[in-house]
């Protein structure tokens, strides 16, 4: 079934392995290796909202970097819209840079502090040789809910939530078809988190984007995504519709992950901190 060529999946990852060599510890022995990804396969369909959940160090950021061709896999294949990107040289990745854009976790370090917001938003256009029109920047600022005079200011003049809006505007500038968001709300307060999640959700609907949303918080992913892959120690342990995975996790790791999420409902019905751990001990 995954062979069917029409329509090509937005992103297809086939048995990808990524090993990082660590510094040698001895002259006599080979350098130790970190297995960041151990044979990951997944497929994201066009227009799908796909979530990747896992804890720090499980390999989810490595996977994102590989999909965005910011890093190369040790073995395996990655296809974006049917084109294999694994062995392409940088100069032939232009289609990827236009069609796939990223929003990063930390809105402070992912925006150049010395550039005005309008230049930040226009940069992807300039880099790809498009005329960076003033209208397009204003249109983007409006789309993410910032006022038009925001373009004249610098990133430090904005709050975390507003900076994340700027990151989103920048990502949308070259009219990508795939948007990758790496923990876009984990640095934000709850009320701002809700605003940014709504914004991402609306834009994905409006522009018919494919969304790959990475988070350590399964409850956020559940709200945003249709399907989710749960990663642990460089492998995908469970994939399925988010509602099903959240309600009836199959893999012991997913069960532990779900039971560790504190929720208001459970807490108000008398759950204690010991209950958060409860399933972890049996697993």
């Amino acid at each position: 079934m995954p062979e069917s060529p029409t329509p090509a999946a937005a992103v297809q990852v086939i048995d990808v392995v990524r090993d990082y060599p660590r510094p040698r510890t001895s002259l006599l022995r080979p350098a130790p290796v970190v297995h960041a990804l151990r044979g990951v396969s997944l497929e994201v369909k066009q227009g799908e909202r796909f979530g990747i959940v896992g804890e720090s160090g499980c390999g989810k950021s490595t996977l994102l970097r590989l999909i965005a061709a910011l890093d190369r896999p040790t073995s395996g294949q990655i296809l974006v819209e049917g084109n294999e990107i694994t062995d392409l040289p940088e100069r032939r990745l232009r289609f990827l840079r236009e069609n796939l854009q990223l929003v990063f976790q930390d809105p402070m370090s992912s925006l150049d502090p010395r550039m005005r917001v309008r230049d930040i938003i226009a940069e992807p256009l300039v880099v790809q040789g498009h005329p960076a029109s003033r209208e397009r920047v204003l249109e983007l600022l409006d789309a993410v809910g910032l006022s038009s005079d925001a373009g004249d200011r610098y990133p430090h003049q904005f709050s975390g939530g507003q900076r994340q809006r700027i990151s989103i505007a920048r990502a949308l500038a070259p009219r990508p078809r795939i948007l990758i968001a790496d923990e876009p709300v984990s640095a934000l307060d709850v009320s701002v988190r809700a605003q940014v999640l709504n914004l991402i959700s609306d834009l994905v609907d409006e522009l018919n984007l494919t969304l790959i949303f990475v988070s350590h918080d399964l409850s956020v992913v559940k709200h945003v995504c249709d399907r989710v892959a749960v990663m642990n120690a460089g492998q995908i342990v469970e994939t399925g519709p988010t509602g099903d995975v959240y309600a009836a996790p199959q893999h012991p790791y997913t069960q532990r992950l779900v039971s560790a999420i504190p929720t208001l409902e459970r807490a108000l019905s008398g759950a204690t901190t010991a209950d958060l751990l409860a399933k972890g001990e049996t697993a």
Partner: peptide, 15 residues
């Protein structure tokens, strides 16, 4: 912290 680690730390604080 990650959620599973958070669960452990919260429990240790309360205990």
């Amino acid at each position: 912290l990650d959620v599973t680690v958070q669960a452990l730390v919260l429990d240790l604080i309360v205990q």
